[in-house]
Amino acid sequence: MNHYFKSVIPVIESNYNKFTTVEKSIADFFINNQKKADFSAKTVASKLFVSEASLSRFAQKCGYRGYREFIYQYEENFVEKKETMAGNTLMILNAYQELLNSSYSLVDEKQIERIGNYLNKAKKVLVCGKGSSGLAAKEMEIRFMRIGVDVDSITDTDLMRMRAVFQDEDSLVFGFSIGGQKEEIIFLLKEAEKRGAKTILFTANNRDDYKEFCTEVVLVPSLLHLNHGNVISPQFPILIMTDIIYSYYVERDETKKKILHERTLQALEKSYTEKIERK
């Protein structure tokens, strides 16, 4: 279960809404295909009734230099893996393994380093999300609060709109939206960006217009095309990326942040002990 490879599938999924109708038909083919075959440009173009130039443009929209580079990466999906379990256990573990592989494919380490720099410079951090994304926002607040970050999480729509107007150049705002279309999250990021704040959107849906109001767009895996995705916690892809950011951030001043973390644990233990003694 520890086999990781750079898969193009999450890259295709995250860019899906940017494709033309022809490019979406190409994307659907590669997403749904389960068999290793002849993926030469000539063969695939003939099979899908598209031009080889369309395949090239599709590959470039996915971030590759051309179709040849794209297909070289795509064929990694067919590396043989040995399975030693069966039933629901294997189904769930494989689903999480696929999400981890997808995260591995999407993570941009230079971007993570930039976000670490933003966290170091920010005087206040705001993390926002609705539903399952809201749970991930609360988790991020607790994690980073314990190492000295002045951070709040918000899950209420009205509070998001109110807090948007108080952001400034000292602020760093995270918005969590898998679909990338939560109106209140987009509103918050747009208003914060207008006021000079750094803004970061976590989403599975990459769109060109995000660049107008997002300092960074962190792509996370989508559950849409994942078999049995309905049994996987929706916040899991976001938590993976926040854990990676956390590890990079802690590494910058590991001793100091470990001390702060220990102090928060000690404070919690002291509070618990005092409650027991009062009883």
Results as ranks from 00 to 15, higher is better:
M1L: 09
V8K: 01
I9G: 02
P10E: 04
I12F: 01
E13L: 07
N15Y: 03
Y16F: 11
N17F: 04
T21Y: 11
I26Q: 03
S46H: 12
L48K: 10
A53G: 09
S56G: 02
R57P: 00
F58I: 01
C62K: 00
Y67T: 01
Y67W: 04
F70W: 05
K82H: 11
A86Y: 10
L90P: 00
I92T: 03
L99T: 04
Q111W: 04
I112A: 09
E113D: 15
G116W: 05
L126F: 10
G129S: 09
S132W: 06
S133Y: 04
G134D: 10
E139Q: 14
E141F: 05
R146H: 14
R146M: 09
D150K: 15
S153A: 15
G175P: 12
I178D: 06
E183V: 13
E184H: 12
I185S: 02
A192E: 04
K194S: 13
F202Q: 02
T203L: 04
K211E: 05
E212R: 10
E212C: 01
F213M: 03
C214P: 02
T215Q: 04
V217Q: 05
H225G: 06
H228W: 09
G229D: 05
N230K: 12
I232W: 03
S233F: 07
I238N: 02
I240E: 03
I240V: 15
I244S: 03
I245N: 01
V250F: 03
E251A: 14
K256C: 06
K257W: 09
R263N: 14
R263K: 15
Q266M: 12
A267C: 10
I276H: 08
E277I: 15
K279H: 12
K279R: 14
